Amino acid sequence: MRYPTILLIALLCGASSLALAESSPLAGTAWRLVEIQSMDDQVYVPEEGAEYSLELRDDGMVAIRADCQLGTGTWASDAPGQLRFGAIATTRALCPPGSLSERYLAQFQWVRSYVIEDEHLFLATMADGSIIELAPVEPSAPVATLFGEALRDVDATQLQEIILGRLFEHYADEQGIIAEPDEIAALLERLRAGRAAAGLDAETALSPEEREQLAVMQRDMARALIRHWKINRALHQEYGGRIIYQQLGPEPLDAYRAFLDAQQAAGAFSIHDPALSEAFWRYFTDESIHDFMAPGSDDETQAFAVPPWER
């Protein structure tokens, strides 16, 4: 639809009077996406069966569902009609073709104002003047809690990805685990040499812009691989136990379980849904689905002895 001029003006300008953020009428509300309208009159409507939601919690946290992806972050409304979102941390799921997931998530960093009209919420961005229309919904009961945040409407795979990702992030920050620039450079060089030896280096066919984009992606991948390996090594050093074979390298499964037990006991997370809890823990308790390294074997003793950027 094309929105009335008075609504667009209200959205784009916002209000000037001051109000406390905690008194915002948005606090404790939940919404579902109706459509996104760009300034060029392009309208994007959610695909049938997909879910796009926005939950603005009383504590200033926001929970977003964008089809197969989930996002968490913060929100603030320092004056009536004004609205800003902090950085949104998202899962890395790959949604099917035609999904609005990336487009929907990309809007929030640019949102600056809102209007509620006919019980619908309209958000306006400062980038291209997009208008995001949402309808009210009742928030569902939380299935889990992570660092005090309620998690809703997630399946077992998403729940495991969110909980492990946040816990590992927190652990890495506590332990000061980072990927150093020289480590990233060394791993990139090893990967480049491996591709060249296999005849898979096709960068010469790319434009300068495409090469730069590829280089950024490769650096991010190398950084993530190194950091993940260091987290695994630190967990194994702390908790010990058996190691399994995985595509991205050795994984200290017993250490994962001990770490999760400790985090759950400390109140970092809890899973309220029994079926989801059973599915979540199965990966760490069902030994039949894993390929363990033989105790005392070279594979086990060398699993975390040589970093991947030095092999």
Rank of each mutant, 00 (worst) to 15 (best):
P136R: 09
Q246H: 08
L11R: 04
A234R: 05
D173F: 10
A50D: 11
G60W: 06
A63F: 13
T72F: 13
G148N: 10
P142R: 07
S24L: 07
L164E: 08
L276Q: 06
L260Q: 04
L200F: 11
A255Y: 05
L54R: 03
T5P: 05
L123Q: 01
L260D: 03
A93S: 11
P4A: 02
I64G: 02
Y239K: 08
M39C: 14
Q247K: 07
R103N: 05
Q264T: 08
A205S: 14
R282Y: 08
R223A: 12
R242S: 04
L33I: 07
A10T: 07
A144W: 04
A89F: 09
D41T: 14
E238K: 15
A124P: 05
Q247L: 06
I163D: 02
P136M: 08
A21D: 15
G194L: 08
A156G: 07
Y44G: 02
L253E: 03
Q42D: 14
Q263S: 14
P295I: 09
I116E: 12
A193I: 09
I9K: 13
Q264C: 12
A294M: 15
W75Y: 06
S297M: 09
M39Y: 15
L100T: 02
M126Q: 14
F292H: 04
D78K: 12
L94K: 14
D299F: 12
M1Y: 14
P97G: 00
I244A: 06
C95D: 08
R84A: 09
R219E: 12
A21V: 07
R84Q: 13
I162N: 00
L33W: 01
S288T: 15
I116A: 01
I244G: 00
L70N: 00
Q69Y: 01
I243N: 02
A268T: 05
G199H: 08
C13N: 10
S77Y: 08
R211M: 07
E203T: 14
F147H: 13
L200I: 05
D299Y: 11
G60A: 06
G129F: 10
A197H: 11
T285P: 02
R195H: 11
R311D: 06
A93P: 05
L11C: 09
V137Y: 12
A30K: 10
R57W: 11
E119I: 02
L206M: 15
Q82N: 14
R211Q: 15
A135G: 15
T91F: 09
R65I: 03
Y171Q: 04
D40K: 15
G28I: 11
Y245V: 03
R233Q: 15
I289F: 00
L83F: 09
